[in-house]
Amino acid sequence: MRIRPEQPDDSDAIRAVTAAAFRGAAYSAPPVTPGGDPGEATLVSWLRDDPGWIPELSLVAIEDEKVLGHVVCTRAHVGDQSALGLGPLSVSPQRQKSGIGSALVQAVLAAAAARGESLVALLGEPAYYGRFGFVPAREVGITAPDASWGDYFQVRTLSRYDGRTGEFRYAAPFDRL
């Protein structure tokens, strides 16, 4: 398996992997259209069309030229300062729990740090993301977009983190879900 930036011809495969990964998951966003793919699959398309899209932070895991997983970070903000929002992270259901998701998270965090980014936030399972250095956002004074998310809203500070605090805002397409 190798990880590389998303290429233009990967978009259909990314949508398929994302839809399959989130289909039937209890925590999945509802379909945008009745009977359609989970909201996360549509979200990736919306994010590509948003000014917050950062092409080098949209990564795919490839094996035998097949997309097995995808992760993306997009421009977000804490107050008026730049940050990143991670998600969705998707792995083909047949390959989940094989290390692909971990490899994608590590790769996107390394790419974000190399770009000089300071903070990455996400909504996800603390037991999973804690291994990558994510902590509940409230521990560093960052407020979730929705208070009911509690400890599931997490942040990972990077070397350029300056101690900023305040309310976190994802890229605008997240508000459409």
Rank of each mutant, 00 (worst) to 15 (best):
R138S: 14
A171Q: 12
L84G: 00
Y170Q: 13
Y161A: 12
T165C: 02
V78I: 15
L57D: 08
S82P: 14
I54E: 05
M1Q: 01
P38N: 13
A29I: 05
Y161T: 05
A41I: 10
L68W: 01
R164C: 04
G101F: 03
R131T: 00
A147Q: 04
S148C: 06
V155C: 06
S58E: 08
P51I: 15
E40Q: 06
A13Y: 03
A113K: 02
A172Y: 14
V44S: 06
F132G: 01
V120Y: 02
H77N: 14
D146M: 09
A172G: 08
S82R: 14
V140E: 12
Q94A: 15
G166F: 11
V108T: 13
V32Y: 05
G101W: 03
F153S: 03
F132Q: 05
L119P: 05
D64G: 08
A19P: 08
S28R: 14
G130M: 02
C73T: 08
S28Q: 13
S159G: 12
D146W: 04
I3N: 06
H77G: 00
V17E: 10
S118W: 02
P38S: 13
A144W: 05
G36L: 12
G163T: 00
I3S: 06
I100K: 01
W53V: 02
I54D: 04
P30A: 15
A83G: 05
L119D: 05
S98N: 06
A121I: 04
C73A: 11
G79Y: 04
L43Y: 08
G39Y: 12
E65D: 15
H77I: 03
F168L: 03
A29M: 09
T165I: 06
P31K: 06
P88H: 03
A103F: 02
I62D: 13
G124C: 09
D162V: 01
I62R: 00
V17C: 09
Y170C: 13
E6D: 15
Y129I: 00
E65S: 12
L158T: 09
A171Y: 07
T18D: 11
S118C: 11
G79A: 07
E65I: 02
A110T: 14
Q154V: 07
L86M: 15
S92E: 15
Y128L: 03
D80H: 10
P145V: 08
I54Q: 05
D175S: 14
A114N: 12
A61T: 08
V140S: 12
G99N: 07
I14A: 05
G79Q: 03
V67T: 11
L47H: 05
G163P: 02
A114H: 09
T42M: 06
L84F: 00
A121N: 02
L59M: 14
T18F: 15
Y170S: 11
H70N: 06
P8C: 11
G141C: 05
R23G: 06
R176V: 03
Q96K: 05
